[in-house]
Design a protein around this nucleic acid. Structure first.
Length: 350
DNA sequence: GATGCGTGGCT
DNA sequence: TAGCCAAGCAT
């Protein structure tokens, strides 16, 4: 790796002083100088992966209320946890969350490991989350480098290395800055700095505790950092979703455990491809095609789903696969794209 | 190293 | 409004 520039002295102290003078009050956050509660820290960090604070807060509260300890969560069923996660996105996190809780529950004392390396070995904990939990909950001198910290460091050192190649450099720089006495506060302060001051757009350099040291500010390149690679074009896909209602409820299926919406409840659908092909329905089954498709945008493709209301004259499993008649409580556990389909179907019956 | 994986808010 | 982006991880 290329040499990293010397780290100006006193950056850590200035950042901590800025944090102490006023930081975001978040439900999972310990008081300054205090350690966080491992379960809550871990839960929040997993929820916050690629997810905004505002979206996480209600889910965090709901999980803590329903499963107050990691042992409680470990005892929950897959279906309960997936349903509780519905709407938050990136559903492999929910599967890994439960796998991690179960792994922790069978450890001696049912407690989380305390070191970054041991945490890193748990499901769903990558380099960032392992370091964050180690620092915030256990006071380990670990460098938690997320997108905020990468952005801040790319600017302070005016480094034009494109992401994600800059990440290893950022880790080296961050590790050199982590103070031995307050690693958890430092991790959260660095994140707050990126989230509140050193924002992606319109950074508030005038109030930045690192403004004097910031090379990008001196060079007038703040808006150019970090350098991001071009994003690939997002393809468009088409598909059908089937609303099959009877006196028993609505026919729901469980999606396969891996892949898109893996492990989640769903309405029956065919494949989502460049050209949609409707499923052939048995004779005597009524089908009503709703006029405007449901639009949804995923990370790597956009989707138009044509909703079909079906009056089944026989066993839906024969056409749509293994499933069950879902009630209103079951429907609440559908992911967002399926909620959009549900809304469209329910509107059409008014 | 590249790709797949959700959703919602902001501009 | 259509794109950008968010406390990343697994493969």
């Amino acid at each position: 790796m290329a040499e990293t520039p010397p780290v100006p002295a006193d950056l850590s102290r200035r950042l901590l002083a800025w944090y102490d003078a006023g930081h975001r009050d978040l439900p999972w956050r310990p008081q300054p100088h205090a350690l966080g509660e491992p379960y809550g820290v871990w839960l929040s960090e997993v929820m916050l992966q690629q997810t905004t604070v505002a979206a996480v807060i209600p889910y965090y509260r709901a999980f803590l209320e329903r499963w107050p300890t990691v042992a409680d969560l470990a005892a929950a069923s897959d279906a309960e946890v997936m349903a509780a996660w519905a709407g938050l996105g990136y559903y492999s996190r929910a599967r890994n969350l439960l796998a991690c809780a179960r792994a922790v529950a069978v450890r001696p004392g049912g407690a989380f490991p305390r070191t970054e390396a041991e945490l890193r070995a748990l499901p769903g904990l990558g380099p960032y989350t392992a370091a964050a939990v180690a620092a915030i909950a256990f006071g380990q001198q670990a460098a938690a480098v997320d997108g905020n910290v990468e952005r801040v460091l790319s600017r302070v050192f005016d480094d034009a290395t494109p992401l994600p190649a800059f990440k290893p450099k950022a880790r080296v720089l961050a590790q050199a800055l982590v103070p031995a006495d307050r690693p958890g506060d430092f991790a959260q302060a660095a994140i707050d700095l990126g989230a509140v001051v050193c924002r992606p757009r319109n950074p508030d350099c005038l109030i930045c505790p690192w403004r004097d040291a910031c090379r990008a500010r001196a060079n007038g390149t703040v808006a150019l950092r970090p350098v991001r690679p071009e994003k690939p074009e997002r393809p468009h896909r088409l598909g059908f979703a089937y609303w099959v209602e009877s006196e028993h409820g609505v026919w729901l299926v469980r999606r396969p455990p891996k892949g898109l919406l893996g492990g989640m409840l769903a309405l029956p659908c065919g494949d989502w491809t460049a050209e949609a092909v409707p499923l052939a329905l048995p004779k005597g089954w009524r089908a009503t095609i709703l006029n405007a498709p449901v639009r949804h945008v995923f990370t790597h493709f956009s989707l138009d789903l044509t909703v079909v209301r079906v009056g089944a004259a026989g066993d839906p499993a024969l056409v749509f696969g293994e499933g069950f008649w879902g009630t209103a409580a079951d429907l609440a556990g559908l992911p967002t794209v399926m909620q959009k389909v549900r809304r469209r179907a329910e509107e059409s019956s008014k």
